[in-house]
């Protein structure tokens, strides 16, 4: 190499700043555009709708807002939503822990298939999730005539709402626990068993403390979805006012009756639930990571 560059200090400095700019990042203009687009996109599609929910809900003042929430139909919808969530979350909690134990602690053929089946409700349209129960329990369904003959109401009643909700929220807990427990391995449990602990005791004393944050996280997500599920519940509920309306269904009914403020008032409660879930999620993710740190060495 015999090329010489004229080393006037200014050009060197400029050349250096140009040269050193492009290695790990983009020019500031490109950076600005990318950040701008990302922020704009999220603002239009996420922030604005969220603000709108609360602003519409409060558009006629706090008094109106509170009276909309205190309405008897609203109260019964809130009550039904809570009941449904409690039942389906507890069912899926037990199932999720059992499924995660089987999948994470043992090797068996067809494991991938099992995990895929557990995830299935995620890929099924909520409407179809409701439809399958209509086909089972409806008047023209497989068990419909028998149920009717015995005077048992499942469809267009609380049991079907619970079933549909449980169907839709089925994967949440298991999905959260399986990767967590797989990563943690079985050594601690094996140690406990070899020291003479019973299986149940091992689970309670060794496994549970290790997975508690992941478990809580899964339960929270499951609960948020259970309270907010619309499509599946809408198909099986029958929309009987004061009886089979959950909060999301009431939102729809009020909206369609042009009771916009009341509708947004209920919606604001659900939005608040979503926000709280996200905040809890952020905190829990920190806890889960922290809990896993010592395992790395």
């Amino acid at each position: 190499m015999t090329i010489t560059i004229i080393n006037s200090p200014v050009t060197v400095e400029r050349a250096q700043s140009v040269a050193r700019q492009d290695l790990h990042t983009e020019p500031w203009l490109v950076r600005g555009i990318i950040i701008g687009v990302a922020v704009m996109f999220l603002t239009v599609f996420v922030v604005l709708p969220l603000i709108l929910v609360f602003s519409e809900a409060l558009s006629k003042g706090v008094g109106f807002y509170l009276s909309a929430l205190g309405d008897s139909e609203a109260l019964s919808a809130i009550w039904l939503t809570l009941i449904t969530a409690v039942i389906s979350v507890s069912l899926n909690l037990v199932f999720g822990v059992a499924a995660a134990w089987a999948v994470a602690k043992f090797e068996f053929r067809g494991k991938t298939l099992l995990v895929t089946l557990i995830d299935l409700p995620f890929s099924v349209s909520p409407v179809i999730s409701g439809l399958v129960f209509v086909l089972l329990f409806g008047a023209q369904g497989f068990f419909g005539p028998w149920l009717m003959a015995h005077g048992i109401n499942i469809l267009f009643a609380v049991p079907a709402i619970v079933l549909a909700t449980t169907f839709v929220t089925f994967p949440f807990v298991a999905r959260e626990l399986i990767p967590l427990m797989q990563e943690q391995g079985s050594q601690e449990e094996e140690a406990a068993i070899s020291l003479g602990a019973s299986g149940w005791r091992t689970f309670v004393v060794v496994t549970l403390p290790n997975i508690k944050w992941g478990l809580l996280y899964g339960v929270l997500l499951c609960n948020a979805r259970a309270m907010g599920e619309f499509g599946a519940v809408s198909v099986v509920s029958g929309h009987i006012r004061g009886e089979t309306n959950t909060m999301p269904l009431l939102v729809e009914i009020l909206y369609n009756e042009y009771q916009l403020v009341a509708s947004f008032a209920i919606a604001s409660l659900l939005a608040l639930l979503a926000l709280l879930t996200l905040i809890a999620k952020t905190i829990l993710e920190g806890q889960i990571e922290e809990g896993q740190l010592p395992r790395d060495d």
């Binding site: 996420v46 916009l260 919606a267």
Partner: peptide, 27 residues
């Protein structure tokens, strides 16, 4: 605001669909 924007990416997932529906329609 980066962390905030990071967190709100999940809102479409967490927000009940009926709420999103009426909010987007009104918007």
């Amino acid at each position: 605001g980066r962390r905030l924007f990071d967190a709100i990416v999940d809102i479409p997932f967490a927000l009940p669909t009926a709420v999103a529906g009426i909010a987007l329609t009104t918007l």
